[in-house]
Amino acid sequence: MTQVSADGRAAAAQDIERLRRTVQALEREVARVIVGQELVVRGVTIALLAGGHVLLEGLPGLGKTLLVRTIARVLQLHYSRVQFTPDLMPADILGTNILLDTAHGGRAFEFQAGPIFANLVLADEINRATPKTQSALLEAMQEQVVTVGTIGHPLPRPFFVLATQNPIELEGTYPLPEAELDRFFFKLQVGFPSRAELASIVERTTGPRGEPPATVAEGSSVLELQELAREIPIATHVADYAVRLVLASHPELPEAAESAKRNVRYGASPRAAQTIILGAKIHAVLAGRVNVAFDDVRRVALPTLRHRLILNYEAEARGITTDRVVAELLTAVPEQG
């Protein structure tokens, strides 16, 4: 019995080790291309292992597209890019049924898959498309199925959407609907590189081209790692902390934090609690633990909640950001309920 126990423990330890090594290799290969942005890379990695989608927000030229492309290459994933424009139609993304001549001389409708049929989809400047087109992604992101006509077409697995948006060019853009925002696992902000990082970027991109990043895993292993990550145990009191964090963001609830009552119009959805716990599990593994700590919850709370809170008019008028509200929530909600 003890031998069986030791064997099971060793196998589990090997699984955990494999997951860690894969992530370390992924981050190492990405770092060969992307200078700095470690937190963004870590956030994207966590979202990938959790099977979630990421909304990247940052100025043009900060390497968002390069990051997505590099990850696709490192993980040997089928990658497609969709440049969102105001005249982009849902069918341009999802695909459509076209009438084709058959071998028997007849004609039949045949589904022509759109660019969304890929493992990794880069939705570049997603807020430039109309809400109609943006909403075309809803089913794909949540159900991983595209329904055209009456037929549902499953998307390849793993399936990730990495969308980017520009925070300063607001003219001619359409803010993402809350339902779609909620479907993004994380919203990561891509900051401007530091002086040293910028110097390194200049050096790398203006000199001789280096070796392309190596493949560290493939799609099937990513799926396997996703299942592994879900099995990381989390104690009840830690999960309760995540739940209380989400509840505290709802101004109408008795558990609401003072900051939420003052600044928030709508709090985070239940999906936020799922995201926090799932993200915390992966963060724990990457931190070398087999259990989730309060610190893991805190680390993933900001990218999870910042796009799920809807501020009220007063908060917007005062220039209060959701990041600040989340920080205040983390301060207000005690670890031990």
């Binding site: 423990r9 589990a12 330890a13 699984d15 955990i16 099995e231 145990p233 259990n291």
Partner: peptide
């Protein structure tokens, strides 16, 4: 009897 339970207990 989770996959990582014993590992976690030993780690603790």
């Amino acid at each position: 009897g989770g996959r990582f339970d014993r590992l976690q207990v030993q780690d603790a």
